[in-house]
Amino acid sequence: MLPSHGRYDYLPWAQRPRQSWPGGRKLAVYLGVNLEHFAFGEGLGAELAPGGPQPDILNYAWRDYGNRVGAWRLLQMLDELSLPATVLLNSAMYGYAPDLVAAHRARGDEIAGHGRTNSERQSILPEAEEAAMIAESTAAITAHEGAAPRGWLSPWIAESRVTPDLLAEAGYRYTLNWCMDDQPVWMRTRAGRLLAIPYPQEANDIPSIVGRKDGAEQFADLLIADFAERMRQVADGLPQVMGIALHPYIVGQPYRLRALRRALTVIAGQREAVWITTAGGVFDHCMTWPEGALR
């Protein structure tokens, strides 16, 4: 037997219960907008080009463009298309760009935990330090938003062997870390159940544009094709979740934003046929399904 995480069981796709999203719709779509702040001259960070010795001005400034400019243009587009968002928030953003977080708050967007900063990985921390990091990020969001976040995405989707346990113990109800299904899946933790809601690794601008070097139009075409194929698939009666992961320093660049608008306009134009929501909205609706509808 191979080593196993023991968090969930295998369930063939064809054997899933046939539930529905609100209005009898079968496809739920949500946007995960990553608002991230990075340390200057140290730590982790995506790269536009191979970085040199620290301080790596080229890549630091490229990422900072997202908070200064790109995120505001993305917000404008979301308003134009009447699209909600789940904000995946580094808590360091409260100290660095509080006006940006406030703009999402004013829209009624969901705020989910995304660590302190994407300059670090929680997977390498001792358990007590990881728990303290989760607690620090959670406390900052709770203080500013007036309610604790219910969902979590680890910086760099990095987990230790006890991360799901720590999240459940900290009061989290769902995680976006486990990208193994097109439906939510219950995970076992030492503190009870934690819902894994699908978060994309393909319909995601970092793996696509930074990793595979896809162009802006290619990324937009990817989103449209993913959406169209899912719309075809849900005719089998099985509900799906389509997440779209966005980083303002990437898609907030003008030419990429133009291509993204093309893709999101297609999706927004189908809002009568699909449920456009937030990750938290998916969680809430799953709680209305009968016991055993999710495994």
Rank of each mutant, 00 (worst) to 15 (best):
L2P: 13
P3T: 13
R7T: 06
L11V: 15
L11Y: 12
L11S: 13
P12V: 06
P12D: 08
W13G: 04
Q15P: 00
P17G: 08
W21N: 04
G23M: 09
A28W: 03
V29H: 03
G32R: 00
N34P: 01
N34M: 04
E36D: 11
H37L: 02
F40M: 10
E42G: 02
E47L: 12
P53A: 14
P53D: 12
Q54F: 13
P55V: 08
I57D: 07
I57T: 13
A61Y: 03
Y65L: 07
V69W: 05
G70A: 03
Q76C: 08
L81Y: 05
S82W: 00
P84H: 03
V87F: 02
N90E: 04
S91W: 00
G95I: 02
P98D: 11
P98F: 10
D99K: 13
D99I: 05
D99P: 01
L100D: 06
A103F: 00
H104N: 10
H104K: 01
G108C: 01
D109C: 01
I111L: 11
R116E: 12
N118W: 15
N118C: 12
S119L: 08
E120N: 07
E120W: 05
E127V: 15
E127M: 11
E130T: 07
A135C: 09
T142A: 15
H144R: 15
E145H: 06
A147G: 06
A148V: 04
W152Q: 02
L153Q: 03
S160K: 03
R161Y: 08
L167R: 08
A168K: 15
E169C: 05
A170E: 10
Y172G: 07
R173A: 14
R173D: 14
Y174W: 13
Y174T: 07
L176D: 01
N177H: 04
M180I: 14
D181M: 03
P184E: 04
P184I: 03
M187A: 07
R188Y: 00
G192F: 01
L195Q: 07
A196F: 04
Y199M: 07
Y199E: 05
P200Q: 11
E202Q: 14
N204K: 08
R212F: 09
K213H: 15
D214L: 15
G215R: 07
A216M: 06
A216W: 04
E217A: 14
Q218A: 15
L222I: 05
I224M: 12
A225F: 01
D226M: 03
F227C: 01
A228M: 06
E229A: 13
R232C: 08
G237T: 10
L238A: 14
P239F: 09
M242F: 10
I244N: 05
A245Q: 07
H247D: 07
H247L: 11
P248H: 06
P248F: 03
V251G: 00
G252D: 11
P254W: 11
Y255N: 12
L257H: 02
R258Y: 10
R262W: 07
T265K: 08
T265C: 02
T265W: 02
V266F: 03
G269W: 10
Q270N: 13
Q270R: 15
V274I: 13
W275T: 06
I276E: 06
I276K: 03
I276R: 03
G280Q: 14
G280D: 14
G281Y: 09
F283N: 05
C286A: 15
T288L: 13
W289Y: 11
W289G: 03
W289P: 05
P290N: 09
L294A: 10
